[in-house]
Design a protein around this nucleic acid. Structure first.
Length: 574
DNA sequence: GCCGTTTTCGGCCCGACTGTTTTCAGTCG
């Protein structure tokens, strides 16, 4: 694990433990903030410390003298005193219990002080102990709540991939739109920001009859548990796994609430501090000067009231977007209408289920002017990889279809495997017959560092695009090890493009890596890796990651019209 | 513990929901 992540974890644990021990909540929050900063930082603190020492660390906003010293101590000795000292006072199982919904630091402390439980199983037993009811503030319902929270905690451990959330949201919105009281509705939260995983789903509604809307919401057929149901807020669990929160606000608060519930938390903190410096107050009800309502009907209005441009949700991570909005310097992010075609889909020639003709016709109806068909190469047996004859047969069908398709163009491609020694799975003369080549890795040894393999492949003049460069599957496997900076550097040197794979389990390159690539002027391509036409719409997930990476249309090659694209695809071969 | 156009002390986002209370504490987002 990277040092930043290790430190981030330590500070998070420290915060939980201090919270449990009743330390000043602001101190707890300071540690939590640092934990988050470390988790999201690109640069390694060890490098900063090596180059600039303590003062370098203190330059990072959120890190002051105290925490800088703790980080330095950790870098020198592998741990820090404060952490050891505090952790020794809190049983590890109790820290886990703090993450259970319905159990907070106070409740846990009270139970611990009275019953001295230190183990998870003892805690579960105590929940059935009648003596628990004697404690102040403890009632039957509260205990039921904790039990339910424990169950939920066990079934909702993981965040869902964005693509899974998208399916849930779309179906739920369809249901909610049938409610006669719903006037406007929008998802917010990390879903709206297109974060690659979503913890729970937040939905915002405007409508005249809050309690009826919430009631309708809790009656959604897929609801397995109702956690809260009031006049303005409802909270349910869907299919025993996914938490969905819905809030109802008035029309004049719609924009402010959308802004507020979209987050991120750090973005909102920044926005609110700007508001404060201007003598304004921002809440989910609007922007206020004293008690006077200044703005809030539309999101644009909220940002404008604070002297900012409207900030696209994907940028709201406190990564410089507030400063850019204040200066009027926000990027014009790439959007779906810019995308002219997909350069990585599979057909029924390998493991896809749509024919070339179906793919072409669907592409046209999807608004595309070209489509790159990339079936697997011969070594990928489990995915029906094409032998050379099969590939040539497919090429002939593409030629035939192209003569019938008018202005639309099918491009001959392949997803050629990068073999264990970095060689490609087809010889050069076969690759030369194609319009372009996506090269990717599907087979690797456990713990293998695949950097050299990929770098070697990139040196081939025929490798146009590196496909799903890290091999990770969200929530399932980490992928092979790879030095991202080296890949980016090689992409610059060899003029190779890098894929943002939109497949819902992949999202690979992710937002952070794509941003790094952009900073080195590497061009990217947003592909879906679709295996049938129903998966074309996943492109929205990839566009979301691209937007989170601050990419503009010019940073992405498949925003180019066909002729320009073909010229780009040929740059390396020349 | 951090931070500063309210600058070395005294704030730190703030409101809804729930359950237990009889005016509020705890938890959550």
């Amino acid at each position: 694990m990277k040092i930043n992540k290790m430190l981030s974890k330590r500070f998070e644990e420290l915060a939980s433990a201090l919270d449990f021990l009743g330390e000043n909540p602001f101190k707890v929050r300071a540690y939590l903030k640092v934990s988050r900063i470390l988790d999201e930082m690109d640069e390694e603190v060890s490098e900063i410390y090596k180059m600039e020492g303590l003062s370098g660390l203190e330059k990072i906003p959120g890190i002051g003298e105290g925490i800088a010293k703790k980080i330095a101590e950790f870098l020198e000795t592998g741990t820090f005193q404060k952490y050891e000292e505090v952790m020794s006072q809190v049983p590890p199982d109790l820290l886990i219990l703090m993450n259970v919904p319905g159990i907070g630091p106070r409740t846990l402390k009270q139970i611990y002080d009275n019953f001295r439980v230190t183990k998870m199983e003892d805690f579960v037993k105590i929940l059935d102990d009648p003596r628990l009811l004697q404690l102040p503030g403890m009632g039957e319902k509260k205990i039921e709540n904790i039990k339910r929270g424990l169950e939920l905690y066990l079934s909702m451990q993981e965040r869902m991939p964005l693509g899974v959330a998208m399916g849930i949201v779309e179906e739920l919105l369809e249901y909610m739109n049938k409610c006669e009281y719903v006037k406007f509705i929008s998802p917010c939260g990390s879903y709206r920001r297109m974060k690659e995983t979503v913890g729970d789903i937040d939905i915002l509604v405007v409508g005249p009859n809050g309690s009826e809307i919430i009631k309708y919401f809790t009656q959604y057929p897929l609801v397995s548990d109702v956690l809260a149901s009031g006049d303005t807020k409802g909270s349910v669990v869907i299919e025993n796994k996914y938490q969905v929160d819905l809030r109802v606000v008035s029309e004049e608060s719609w924009g402010a609430a959308l802004q507020y519930f979209t987050g991120s938390k750090s973005h909102n903190v920044k926005v609110r501090s700007i508001a404060k410096s201007k003598g304004l107050k921002v809440s989910e009800y609007g922007v206020f000067m004293g008690d006077k309502y200044v703005a809030g009907r539309e999101e644009e209005e909220v940002y404008r009231a604070l002297g900012m441009e409207w900030i696209p949700p994907e940028l709201r991570e406190d990564q410089g977007e507030v400063e850019a909005a204040l200066a009027g310097n926000l990027p014009n992010l790439v959007e779906f209408k810019d995308i002219k075609g997909d350069l990585h889909v599979h057909s029924s020639y390998s493991d896809g289920s749509s024919s070339l003709e179906e793919l072409a016709k669907y592409s046209i109806s999807f608004g595309y002017s070209y489509l790159g068909v990339c079936d697997h190469s011969k070594s990928v047996k489990y995915a029906g990889g094409l032998a050379i004859d099969g590939l040539r047969e497919k090429n002939r069908e593409i030629d035939r279809l192209n003569s019938e398709l008018g202005g639309f163009r099918l491009l001959k491609g392949t997803e050629v495997d990068i073999l264990a020694d970095g060689k490609l799975d087809y010889p050069d003369e076969v690759l030369a017959e194609l319009d372009f080549v996506v090269a990717s890795i599907h087979m690797w040894k456990k713990n293998e560092d695949a950097t050299e393999r990929i770098l070697k492949a990139m040196e081939s003049p025929f490798v146009t695009i590196i496909g799903h460069p890290t091999g990770r599957l969200i929530g399932q496997r980490e992928g092979y090890r790879v030095d991202i900076d080296a890949i980016i550097e090689k992409a610059v040197e060899t003029k190779t493009f890098i894929e943002i794979n939109s497949y819902y389990e992949r999202l690979d390159f992710n937002d952070v890596n794509a941003k790094k690539a952009k900073e080195k002027d590497v061009l990217l391509v947003i592909n879906t890796d679709a295996h049938h036409t129903g998966q074309f719409s996943m492109v929205r997930l990839g566009i979301g990651q691209a937007r989170r990476a601050w990419l503009m249309p010019n940073d992405v090659i498949n925003t180019r019209p066909l002729e320009d694209l073909i010229e780009l695809l040929n740059t390396k071969r020349k």
